[in-house]
């Protein structure tokens, strides 16, 4: 199908993201990219677990004293909800409802921004306590793991914003449908990684 074709909700294909060869390649390629991201985060998790609570002799910081579950819980809720709203956005993309899609993407963006603000506050708070990046092996591993996730969130927010602004005036077509779909896929992946961070870093840190 051609990129220049104008669509109505009736002629719009069921899976617009895979209606062109390029779109199909993009979706397959992105799933494979996510597989390699999984290995990347697995390596970071393994490093974190090996260095958890390890520091110079007499280090006063430990996961039990440092982490506060209410804050981590609030962050989790924000990110999980944003994953749901991005599902709504893709639902409307498939129904050729551009306005609704943009609205839900904007909500996703705000929730993601909220998460990021809480994370920045959290890091700021820890640094204020003296738990800096160079304080110990534990602190370095913590900031690297959680910070890498935070960098992914930031990248996702920039990605969504660029997509929304670029396509604001022209609506949906078969050229940008795969782009929205893939961005949403990325957002879900970030969410799944956070579920593991919440479990392994925060829950197991405070309770385990």
């Amino acid at each position: 199908m051609d990129y220049n074709t104008k669509f109505t909700p009736h002629t719009w294909p069921d899976h617009p993201e895979q209606a062109t060869m390029e779109g199909k390649n993009k979706v397959v390629g992105f799933w494979i990219f996510l597989a390699c991201e999984v290995v990347l985060f697995a390596s970071l998790f393994a490093t974190y677990l090996a260095l958890k609570n390890k520091g110079p002799a007499g280090m006063e910081f430990s996961t039990q004293e440092l982490f506060e579950l209410p804050l981590a819980f609030a962050m989790t809720m924000l990110l999980l909800t944003s994953s749901l709203t991005s599902v709504y956005a893709i639902y409307h993309m498939r129904n050729f409802n551009f306005k609704a899609m943009q609205t839900w993407l904007a909500i996703t963006l705000l929730l993601g921004l909220g998460f990021l603000c809480l994370e920045i506050y959290e890091f700021y708070h820890y640094v204020h306590l003296g738990f800096t990046f160079s304080q110990s092996a534990f602190s370095t591993a913590f900031y690297t793991l959680v910070g890498t996730h935070g960098a992914h969130v930031t990248l996702g927010l920039i990605w969504f914003t660029t997509l929304m602004i670029r396509n604001a005036k022209r609506g949906l077509n078969l050229y940008n449908a795969p782009k929205f779909f893939v961005a949403a896929l990325y957002w879900h992946f970030i969410d799944v990684v956070w579920v593991f961070i919440f479990t392994v870093v925060y829950l197991m840190g405070v309770i385990g």
């Binding site: 390699c36 991201e37 290995v39 990347l40 390596s43 970071l44 490093t47 090996a50 260095l51 390890k54 520091g55 110079p56 280090m59 990046f133 160079s134 304080q135 110990s136 092996a137 534990f138 602190s139 370095t140 591993a141 690297t144």
Partner: peptide, 29 residues
């Protein structure tokens, strides 16, 4: 390649940005 990327990032942080992944006096390994 992702594990290598991570390994190199850890080395990068340790050597250039004050990290402690491999410094045993700071709890590294």
């Amino acid at each position: 390649f992702p594990p290598l990327t991570v390994g190199l990032v850890l080395m990068l942080f340790d050597r250039m940005f004050g990290g402690n992944f491999f410094d045993h006096t700071m709890g590294g390994n």
